[in-house]
């Protein structure tokens, strides 16, 4: 495989990708304008674009976005704190790891969103139930990765540091923490994504406000074009947040 053919292949792949998007948009456009797909099911893309501009210009999104973001932020702070502390405590003993790690992993494999009705019963339809479910679900990847990070540091590093006379604090600061950090950061990133998704999900299922609620509300009002605009908005917000978290993770790992 020569470099030149490689470059040609890359261009062709890009062309296929662009073609895919163009065909999709064209199908959407002609479907709504020519082939008579009901605008209640599929609105005209131009209409969606106008709605999106209106949503952004009017600031209509601000209250819902604020609620969703503050729910995510609160849930993430709670699950980070609890997950890292609990994970660190468990990781201090190989026995505790053997007892708790499979237990936590087992619970995490159950779709915890099932317990949402229960959370709503406890905390009501407002933000509290969203924060609680977001915290619960994101706690697990964080605690599991913290255990994995602190619990499986290579023995040889610890032995080497001890042989050079490292104190307990030095051991933590210069050996355990740097060794565990990449794994923990990955856990935090996953935890953030999971918190965001479960909060959007619980807003969709039962809530009074937030982006998920707004989309459902528009769907029920049959304002499909505006709903599409909000879906696009929510997808972009989620993508931007994930990108920020991923780049923060990458930057922290480099140091």
């Amino acid at each position: 495989m020569s470099a030149r053919r490689d470059r040609r292949d890359k261009l062709a792949s890009r062309a296929v990708q662009a073609g895919f998007v163009v065909v999709l948009v064209a199908l959407w456009y002609f479907g709504t304008t020519r082939w008579g797909v009901s605008h209640l099911l599929l609105p005209n893309p131009v209409k969606v674009w106008e709605e999106l501009k209106d949503v952004l210009a009017s600031g209509d999104y601000i209250p819902d976005l604020t609620i969703t973001l503050s729910e995510v932020a609160t849930a993430f702070v709670l699950s980070c704190t609890s997950g890292v502390i609990v994970g660190y405590v468990i990781s201090r003993s190989q026995y505790a790891i053997r007892v708790f790690e499979p237990l936590l992993a087992g619970i995490y494999s159950v779709p915890i969103i099932l317990f949402l009705p229960l959370y709503i019963l406890f905390f009501g339809l407002g933000p509290a139930s969203k924060i609680a479910i977001g915290t619960t679900i994101s706690f697990f990847p964080i605690v599991l990765n913290t255990i994995a990070g602190f619990g499986y540091v290579e023995k040889i590093f610890i032995t080497a540091a001890r042989s050079m006379g490292a104190s307990n604090y030095q051991m933590f600061r210069y050996v355990l923490l740097p060794a565990a950090l990449p794994v923990i950061l990955t856990g935090l990133r996953i935890g953030f994504t999971v918190a965001l998704l479960s909060i959007l999900g619980s807003e969709t299922i039962a809530s009074l406000a937030g982006l998920g609620h707004k989309i459902v509300h528009l769907a029920e009002a049959m304002e499909t074009a505006r709903m599409f605009a909000y879906i696009a908005f929510a997808v972009v917000i989620a993508a931007v947040l994930n990108m920020i978290v991923t780049s923060l993770e990458a930057r922290a790992k480099r140091q």
């Binding site: 062709a12 998704l197 959007l200 879906i231 997808v235």
Partner: peptide
């Protein structure tokens, strides 16, 4: 792989929960 994997990963990464009403 080169052509379609990025599209698949993009779709995998989008929060599908937002389109549940659809």
């Amino acid at each position: 792989h080169r052509s379609f994997m990025p599209i698949i990963l993009l779709l995998y990464g989008t929060p599908q929960i937002t389109i549940l009403p659809l």
